[in-house]
Structure formats: C-alpha cells, structure tokens
Design a protein around this nucleic acid. Structure first.
Length: 860
RNA sequence: GCCUGGGUGGCGGAACUGGUAGACGCAAGGGACUUAAAAUCCCUCGGUGCUUGACACUGUGAGGGUUCGAUUCCCUCCCCAGGCACCA
C-alpha cells in the first residue's frame, strides 16, 4: 500500500465517523474530572472567517488534549443569533431576519463541521429562539422584582430620516451611517440593569481571577474606575441652598476659587432663571448638547463656559466663588458639579486663564516655589500645603484624610467613593432581539409579564423597511394586550434587549441545553460543569461581554440558580489574524486573488503592498477558509493557524507558510507509508532492551518530544513550539538509517516513533492522524486513546555539553558524561587547549561553575 | 496624556527560574534523483573582517547600570500595537 495524502477524502471520512458515532457527546460523569472548554460563540454572519478558524482551532486542540488526558470534556457550540446585521439584510434584500439568520447558521455549521472541531453538537443553541430567550425574560422578571431593573429617561442617537435609534458606532462624525443625515438626540425611557449593585464584588474579584491576562483585568478595573474622595458641600452665597461636589483632591480645597457645573445639569438653568444672563446661558447649554454628539470623535475640545451670575462660598475659606456652566464637566459623574482649583488642575487652569479667574497656590513645589502670577500650567505633582490654614506645612497626600475629617467635623463634607461604571442600558429600539417582558398600563405603570405567560415571543409576521423604527411598534396584535394587574387595556413594551444579554449566560445554558423547565438551567448540571475552565476569544470583548457575563453569574448565583461566583476560571485572548493589504491605483483595495504576480488582474498595473492589518472585508485582505480547505484541507489550515504564532499574539498570514504546513503533513504521511510494510506486524518499542547509536538517539528523541509537547500544550498553550518539537522528531526519523527488514528491535523503535508522531499531532490535525493510525493498524480509534507518557531518564542526555568561558565569553565547549563530577569538569575546563590559550599567563581571579552548564574563568 | 502589551536574521518566530542567542518553519543558495521539469531527499544560511579557521570582532530598538556573565533584572529614552481618554 502506498497511497497519496488526500486530505479531502480522509477528512470527510472521519468527520462523518465522528458525527455518526457522536464521539464528542458528553454527559455528567461524577467519576471523571470535568473540563469545560468554551470558545466565544459566533454571530451567524453567513461565513466563518479566519478569526473563527484560529479561535476555534486553538480551543479544539485544548479540548482534544484534555480529553486524552482523561478529562470529561464539555466543548459546545452555538449561535449569538440576535442582532442588527439580520435587520440590515432584511432591509436590503427583503428577506426576513429569521430566515436570513437560520440560513447562515446552516451554512456556518457545515463550515465548522468541515474544520473537524470536536463539538458536542447535541448542545447547540441559538439565542434567537424562544426556547432560549424565554429564560432570559424570566431572569428579567426576577430582576424587576428584586429592583435590579429600572426605567430611566436617557438620551439616544436618533436619525429622524430613518426613524431609528443608532448605536454609537453608527454615528459617523455626527451623521447617520446609512442616510448621511444629521443625528440628533432623543429622550427615551430606557431599561437599565443595575450592574452597579455588584460593582464592588466585580472589582474585588478582579484580584482573584489569577487565570486571566493581566491586561484584561486592568481594562476591567479601569472601566469600573473606583476612586476614593470626598463629597463637599458648598453653601450658596445668597440663599440657603448648597452645591455638592465630588472630589478626590480635597487637599486642594483652600485653592478652590470657582465652581463648575455640567452644562446639561438642571441646576444650570435653575440658577440662571430670570437673570439677565438667562438667554446667553440657555443658548450655551443647547450648543453644548449639540456639540456633544460630534466631540466624542475629536481629540481636542476647547474649554468653554458661561457665568451664571451666582456665587457660592468656599466652605473652608468662606471666599465667594463664581459659578459657571462648563462644557467639559460630565453630568453623570459624581454630582455633575466640580470645585475648580486652577493652580493644581490643568483643565481648571485653562478655564481660569480664559475667563480671568483668581489663582491661589495651595501646594508648593518643594524644589522651586510657585508663584501664581507666573504659572503657565497647573502644578499637579506632590508638594507641601500652603495657604491652607491649619494644614500648612503638611505633605499634600498625607493631608487628604485630615482635611476630609475636618470637613466632616464642620458638617461640610463626607468621605465617599465614586465609580466610573454606569448601569447597563439594555433597551434597543430594534426588532431583531429578545422582547422585554413588560406591559405598560396607563393605570398601573410598567407591569412585568407574569412568569406563566412567558415567553413573550417576538412576532415574525413583520416587514422591515428601514423606516419608522421597529416594525413591532405598529403591530397591533403584538402591542395591544391587557394589564396583568388590573385587566384593563395595556400596551406591550416594544423595546428589545441588548444582544449582550444573551451572551451573558449562554455558557450556563450549554450545561443543560435542552432543559425546558424553570429556570432553564439545571442546577445539578451547572454545578457539575461550571465554571468554564478555559474560555477563549478575542480581546475586543475584554470589557463589556466579560463584565456583563460576570455580573449575570453573580446575579444568578444570588437567585439560587448557580453555585459559583465567577464564570470563567481561565481566559485566553487570542490575537487577530492579519494580512498585508494590496492596492491598485485604479481599482482600490484588491482581494488576494485579484493580484497576479504583483499586478492587478483588472488593469495589469502593478499593485502597492500596504501595511499588515487585521483581515477585514473593507481592506479586502481576507483569506477565505473555504478556499483554504479546498486547496489544502482542514488539517493544513489548523496546522498553520497554530504554527505561525503563539495564540495570544497576532498572526500574520503567509501563503508560503501555509504551503510549508501542508508540506510537513505530506512529509509525515510519506514516512509512515515508507515504513508501512516493515512495521505492520511489529509492536512498538517498550524500553525493555538496551539500545545503541542512532536507535538510542531516536528513542531518546521520542521521550524528549513527548515531554516538550506536553509541557508546551499543558502549561501555556504554545502550540507553535509543540509543533516544532514534533517536526524535530520527524526530522530525526528521516535521518535515522533505515533498519534491515528482519531487525525487529530497530523496527519497533521506528514504530514507536511513528506512533508518537501520530498521537502527539492528533489534537492539532485530527483527520490525517486518525487515518494514519488506522492504516498502521491501531486497534482503538485515536480519539479514544490517552496522551502518551515519557520516561524522564530516557529523555535525559547522558552526554552534556559544558560551555567554557573566559571573562564571560564563550571560548570552547566540552562534552562530558552527565554524571561526571564537578571537580573533574572544572579540571578538564582549565586544561582545555583553547582555554589555556586565552588564559595565557594571566592570573586566574575567579572560577564560576554552573552545574552541568558552564565554567567561566575570570582572569586579569 | 495615562494604562497594558511588544521591538530578536531577508521573514514568522525559539531561548524553562540571569548561563551555548537565532530551535522549528518560510524565503534564498547549492547538491542528489530525473531525458527534463515538478515533487521529493540532503547540505548551507545574522553581520563584518581576514590569516578561510576548532578564527577574530560584532550582534536581541538606543544609551547607561547591576553581575564573572544580561534577549532575560534596574533606570532613562525612542518606536509600534491595543485600551482608556476632560472621571474632578
């Protein structure tokens, strides 16, 4: 038998086999240690892309490896199937979102199966199905009862032409991405999840998630943005009212010379009311509100304000402080009011310069005293307090507490904590999402849909035109209902939920995907499987998705549904798949197959090679996984994705690199075919006999390779070096002289080497290895085989190379047997001819010996 | 501006806790096989210099430092990528 490597035939054969045998179906098994491996599920956009291929290949290797290590591995897959692209497709192509979505799922499922991923497809879920989102609606109702959901007026981006709400990323320089009209803001009642109730726990656990990348945790901590400070009360100069501010810099209170209020703050118009400045102020406020839309994208924002013709008093100096409305103060952070200390805050400094407001230095620079009149920027470093009454002479940082206490004692302040994190606005004025289970009654207000009436099914008999907002708003049969409370006529909520809600608990649902009784999650099963042992996905979800999922986990725990605090024990954020861009002067960005020998296929002119960027449709630097599978097969695609870079780093696509991976698989295939007849009846070497020369060397290499591959996969997911190790073993195999046909011992070592290559490569390239395993007569299926072990002694070298240095420079190397005594090694080193040459007649000052590694002789 | 990562051959990348820099692969060059080509198998491959060697010097973004010894630790700076960005 001497067949050629035909990836398609064997890949489809084994995929069919795994599917038929349900090889990767799992159930809870209390006798086995569980391992829950999860990759972030995809949005069914229609086609898998290289990012998916990479993400899911990484996961698949770990899943298969863990299974071989004896774990009961849960490795599920599903679809994050609500969301806007379906609506856009409906508008553009007149196809219903559900039809479009399900067609995409069909196609993508086929693509994933063609990659040979080891999913338990029996657990497949799709979030746009009522069987899924009904439980989410149940959670919503529970949250409502517990006060974890509330409705609040909020501002949204609104396109009056499209009659629709736009997400921030759909607003391009203040214009609607679709029609190009100006985006305005609209006040709408929106539903919020009270994630801030869990803010402390979310922050605290950041320090306990030792299996997460540091940068993700920092991003989450920054996003939560906890700061300790003080709420300080400023009395109004002329009335009994007060203005409260939040500050972390109460040490600068004696330097607060004016007050700033966010332009949108209601207090602004209140203060200006009836005064001569009212007109000017309201004009300013309106302008800032409009500006706010655009400014998010611009990097420089001129600080502006308007005097409100009002004063308050500095609570410690009793000095009068003019009050301004300002464009750079945030209305929803702290109290929306800020005490301005121009000498020690750069923003306040710029503002004071512009409006000629007084400067009082209260922290002096210990190196060169500050003079208010000559300052060109705020002094924001540490220093010694001056002009600060009883606190003069103290170091400013040390005075923070004292000043806070002082303010408390005079009843003008208290220590507080602020967070940057806001509650999670989940209302979307969109059709393709899970309906919010609320009924609005004129008499009773918002009433949650009774549990027994769930799910509120999203009606499918609608037509999307892109105008007039969500079509269910006009669907009387949906909207008109009766109030569950009073029985009177009422209207259903037509907002749907943010799709981040579905992805906040899908990993729980995978544990009991077919559960149809309340609450849709079987406690016994989630207790067995959760938390996810290894979660893998893109860094782009470092903040929102992961934070929301953590929040949901804690909340469901408090509902008694889950028994865990955190959903993901270990997190791996894989890098992006990048490729160089190619561009033709005339035809713009070109797809890889629009370029032939450096020229554009449309006009024949040379193309310019641009910089390497994340693969994206708009840059056309994409490689189609289907094409790759067609040309090389899934195993090559998997192999290249793993070999080209470690998983957490960006992967630069290289067609030649793919070729190289394919060649390697061919090399493996050929060596097996080459030895096939000779080793057919031979048992693999069992380390019972003593070996010599090349065979001993090969056997040692086998053990070393198992060791390295195990370490590289187990500890750090460095599949690239794991593959290198196997490549070395294959190279050694090629270099080992071919044994005589009758030489049973030699052939048994060869067989052992071949088996090892096959088994070690199985998690990476499962098809070719299953096939080779079958061809060489493996009795079990490879997918049922355990990970091989190695013998540390056989793996160790008996001859070691000792590096000889003189003054830290490598001058010679010697080979000694591994058990040679230290003294002898040093002796040999000193007498080494080349070392002698470098020592000459110089005096030996020192001799450093690193056991089994090197000798360094220091001379002068 | 702040916070994370990261800068190593022509390229992707190795180097475990300070101890042989460049594993493995790609590209390139050479050889073998072949009527020939492809495929395959084997060899060479950081730079410079010459006395062409078991040679010398140099080399991990730049400059300093610690050390017998630094890609690895410390300080300063430059560049790249990502995140946050008026959060008081």
């Amino acid at each position: 038998m001497n067949r050629k490597y035909n990836p398609h035939e064997i890949e489809e054969k084994w995929q069919l086999y795994w599917e038929k045998e349900k090889t990767y179906r799992v159930t809870e098994d209390p006798d086995k240690k569980k391992y829950y491996l999860l990759e972030m599920f995809p949005y069914p956009s229609g086609n898998i892309h290289m990012g998916h291929v990479r993400n899911y290949t990484i996961g698949d290797v770990v899943a298969r490896y863990k299974k071989m290590m004896g774990f009961n591995v849960l490795h599920p897959m599903g679809w994050d199937s609500f969301g806007m692209p379906a609506e856009n497709a409906a508008i553009e192509h007149g196809i219903h979102p559900s039809v479009w979505t399900n067609e995409n799922i069909e196609h993508m499922r086929k693509q994933l199966k063609r990659m040979g991923f080891s999913y338990d497809w029996d657990r497949e879920l799709s979030t746009c199905e009522p069987e899924y989102y009904k439980w989410e609606q149940l959670f919503f109702v529970w949250m409502y009862e517990k006060g974890l959901v509330y409705k609040k007026g909020g501002v949204v981006n609104w396109c009056s032409t499209c009659q629709t709400v736009l997400a921030n990323e759909q607003v391009e320089a203040g214009l609607c991405w679709r029609c190009g009209n100006e985006v305005t803001e609209k006040h709408l009642d929106q539903w919020f999840f009270k994630i801030t109730d869990y803010v402390e726990e979310l922050l605290e656990y950041c320090d306990k998630l030792s299996g997460w990348p540091e940068r993700v945790l920092t991003m989450q901590k920054n996003w939560i943005g906890k700061s300790h400070g003080c709420e300080i009360v400023f009395p109004m100069a002329d009335t009994d009212d007060v203005i409260k501010v939040f500050t972390t810099r109460q040490d600068t209170i004696y330097g607060a010379t004016f007050m700033l209020i966010a332009a949108e703050h209601p207090l602004v118009m209140e203060l200006a009311k009836g005064k001569s400045c009212e007109g000017e102020v309201s004009e300013f406020v309106e302008r800032v509100k409009r500006q706010d839309r655009m400014v998010r994208t611009s990097d420089y924002y001129e600080k502006e304000g308007v005097f409100l013709d009002a004063y308050c008093l500095n609570p410690v100096t009793e000095e009068k402080m003019p009050i301004y409305a300002a464009n750079f103060v945030l209305a929803d952070y702290g109290t929306g009011c800020v005490m301005a200390v121009p000498t020690h805050d750069q923003r306040d400094f710029e503002f004071a310069e512009k409006y000629e407001l007084p400067l009082v230095v209260v922290i002096d620079n210990p190196e060169s005293p500050l003079v208010a009149e000559t300052m060109t920027e705020a002094y924001v470093d540490e220093g010694i307090l001056i002009n600060s009454g009883p606190f003069d002479g103290m170091e400013n940082l040390k005075a923070l507490d004292n000043i806070a206490e002082h303010l408390e004692s005079i009843g003008r302040g208290s220590k507080t904590t602020e967070y940057r994190l806001r509650d999670w606005g989940i209302s979307r004025q969109r059709y393709w999402g899970a309906p919010i289970p609320i009924i609005n009654c004129d008499k009773c207000g918002a009433v949650p849909v009774p549990e027994e009436d769930l799910p509120v099914v999203l009606p499918r008999n609608v037509e999307l035109t892109g105008e007039g907002g969500s079509p269910i708003v006009r669907l009387d049969s949906f909207v008109n209902t009766t109030c569950p409370n009073c029985g009177g006529p009422a209207k259903r909520e037509t907002d749907t939920m943010d799709t981040f809600v579905e992805s906040s608990w899908y990993f729980d649902r995978f544990c009991s995907a077919d559960c149809d009784s309340k609450p849709g999650l079987e406690r016994k099963k989630t207790d067995y499987w959760m938390p996810v042992d290894q979660y893998i996905g893109g860094i782009e979800h470092a903040i929102l998705h992961l934070l929301y999922a953590r929040f949901f986990t804690k909340m469901l725990r408090d509902f008694g549904v889950l028994g865990i605090d955190e959903p993901f024990t270990n997190l791996l954020t894989q890098g992006m798949v990048c490729k160089e861009t190619t561009r033709c002067k005339q035809h713009g960005f070109l797809l890889p197959d629009e370029v032939k020998e450096g020229n554009c296929i449309h006009c024949g002119k040379p193309v310019t090679i641009g910089k390497t960027e994340k693969m994206s449709k708009s840059l056309k630097n994409v490689v189609d996984p289907d094409y790759l599978i067609k040309k090389y097969g899934a195993d090559t695609a998997r192999m290249f994705c793993l070999f080209a870079a470690p998983p957490e780093r960006d992967l630069e696509w290289s067609d030649q690199g793919v070729d190289g991976s394919f060649r390697f698989l061919g090399r493996v295939w050929r060596i097996v075919m080459d030895y096939l007849e000779d080793i057919a009846e031979i048992e693999p070497f069992n380390d019972a006999t003593e070996l010599e020369g090349d065979l001993k060397n090969l056997n040692k290499k086998i053990h070393q390779t198992i060791k390295r591959v195990t370490r590289d996969i187990e500890g750090r997911f460095h599949f690239n070096t794991a593959i290198s190790a196997v490549m070395e073993l294959v190279n050694t195999l090629y270099q080992t002289p071919r044994p005589e046909k009758g030489d049973g011992t030699a052939l048994s070592v060869i067989k052992k080497a071949i088996e090892s290559v096959i088994i070690l490569l199985f998690p990476i390239v499962p098809h070719i290895t299953e096939e080779l395993w079958e061809i060489i007569g493996g009795k079990e299926k490879l997918s049922d085989i355990s990970w091989p072990s190695y013998d540390e002694e056989i793996a160790s070298e008996e001859k070691i190379t000792i590096v000889l240095q003189v003054n830290g420079k490598v001058r010679s190397r010697i080979e000694v047997s591994a058990d040679e005594s230290d003294d002898t090694i040093k002796e040999i080193a000193r007498n080494d001819e080349r070392i002698q040459k470098f020592i000459g007649d110089k005096a030996i000052l020192k001799e450093i010996y690193v056991p089994k590694k090197l000798v360094n002789i220091v001379v002068k």
